[in-house]
Amino acid sequence: MEIIYALAIGVLTGSGVWLLLRPRTFQVIMGFSLLSYAVNLFIFGMGRLTVGRAPIIDTLKQVDPSLYNDPVPQALVLTAIVIGFATTALFLVVLLASRGLTGTDHVDGEESEP
């Protein structure tokens, strides 16, 4: 499982990095999306992969930390997902405003080569 998980992170990172370096704003916004998936998975993975151990305490049993997945990375990722949405929205609007002002969707606001 771990190897698949790691490969998934790698593919998402690679695709994200590739898109980040492209010249069109839409490519960059997609790149950020993919890269944020990768980063979220990476942070989540810091709590190690466990199956069927959601950090929801069973009130009937004794609390034993080893029975649950690490909640801290999960809480971090949850925050990251929401903030990621906010930055995507902001970036999209800046992108649209830039496109309206400059007439192009190149990230620099002008075509690099004629």
Partner: peptide
């Protein structure tokens, strides 16, 4: 850029795998 993307992806894979297979 393709080379850079592949290197970055491979790096992240190795890094994640190495973390995932050790005790927290």
């Amino acid at each position: 850029d393709l080379g850079l993307a592949i290197i970055a992806g491979a790096g992240m894979t190795v890094l994640s795998f190495s973390v995932l297979t050790r005790r927290a």
